[in-house]
Simulated assay, not measured.
Amino acid sequence: MRDEPVPAASPEDTAPSPAARGPGRPKDLAKRAAILQAGTVLFVDNGYEGTSMEAVAAAAGVSKLTVYSHFGNKQGLFVAAVQAHCERMLPDALFARAPETPLAQRLHSVARAVHALCTSPEAIAASRVLGAPGMAGSQEARLYWDAGPARLQADLEALLARRSARGELRLDPADAQTIATAASQFIALLTGPAQVRLVLGCDPAPVNPQTHIAAAVATFLRAWAADPPAN
């Protein structure tokens, strides 16, 4: 995907007037899903600037007016595509309470999902778009943060706090700052250079993903587990 600057709003990015949309009409969920899928593919393949609402409509098999009706403009479609991808890769069930599951097994499940998300073509494409001139501090950037990194951080903090309360981690469950630090460290162990290489278009990391995931979990447990694994 090309790393191109995000242009100023143009007729392509501007939604039709409310009257043109037919306010009050129920949205078709199947059409919405088709538009999201088409938009995701085109953003990954063509970049932000290289994706038009007309092309999304054609790929989804709907009218351009329908695309605008669901998402308002191209920025709205991009943010919605990011949110849908994050929710699909990191479903709520991943962080649901499961005290019967051993800590290491639980962390491996989360680690596999986080690594898969952060190295997915969709996430790499989003990182390139958001790194373009004009996107720093934008609404799109803030919404992306809330939909992906912030949501992951909060869910992981809650999981670590619960496991700390059970005595499985050397963390005070009431110490929010230390819990947040531990969660950030866990995420950093799973991303780092491997993700940066993909964003920059370099060769993939030479380390096997499963080896990388296992090492990240082991490192985290050696640092924080009440009964750390042997070296």
Rank of each mutant, 00 (worst) to 15 (best):
R21N: 14
R21S: 12
R21I: 15
G22M: 15
P23H: 01
G24R: 15
R25K: 15
P26E: 15
P26N: 15
K27Q: 12
K27R: 15
K27C: 07
K27E: 08
K27W: 09
D28C: 13
D28W: 14
D28R: 14
L29W: 12
A30Y: 09
A30L: 11
K31C: 08
K31R: 13
R32H: 11
R32L: 06
R32A: 11
A33M: 15
A33F: 13
A34F: 14
I35Q: 06
I35L: 09
I35C: 11
I35E: 02
I35S: 02
I35F: 01
L36K: 02
L36D: 08
A38K: 03
G39C: 10
G39Q: 04
G39H: 10
G39V: 08
T40I: 06
T40N: 02
T40W: 00
V41L: 10
L42H: 03
L42E: 01
F43E: 12
F43D: 11
V44L: 00
V44W: 01
V44Y: 00
V44R: 07
V44C: 08
V44A: 00
V44I: 10
D45H: 03
D45K: 05
D45I: 05
N46T: 00
G47S: 11
G47N: 06
G47H: 00
G47R: 01
G47Q: 01
Y48G: 07
Y48R: 14
Y48T: 00
Y48K: 10
E49T: 10
E49M: 00
E49Q: 01
E49W: 02
E49H: 00
G50N: 07
G50K: 09
T51S: 12
T51I: 12
S52C: 13
S52P: 12
S52G: 14
S52K: 11
M53V: 03
M53C: 10
M53L: 15
E54M: 07
E54K: 04
A55M: 10
A55Q: 10
A55F: 02
V56S: 03
V56F: 04
V56D: 05
V56N: 07
V56I: 12
A57I: 01
A57Y: 06
A58L: 08
A58I: 06
A58P: 02
A58R: 08
A59S: 06
A59R: 00
A59I: 07
A59G: 04
A60H: 02
A60W: 05
A60Q: 07
G61I: 09
G61H: 09
G61E: 09
G61P: 04
V62C: 09
S63L: 07
S63R: 10
S63N: 08
K64W: 05
L65T: 03
L65R: 01
T66P: 02
T66K: 06
V67R: 06
V67P: 03
Y68R: 07
Y68H: 13
Y68V: 03
Y68A: 09
S69C: 01
S69F: 00
S69P: 05
S69V: 06
H70Q: 12
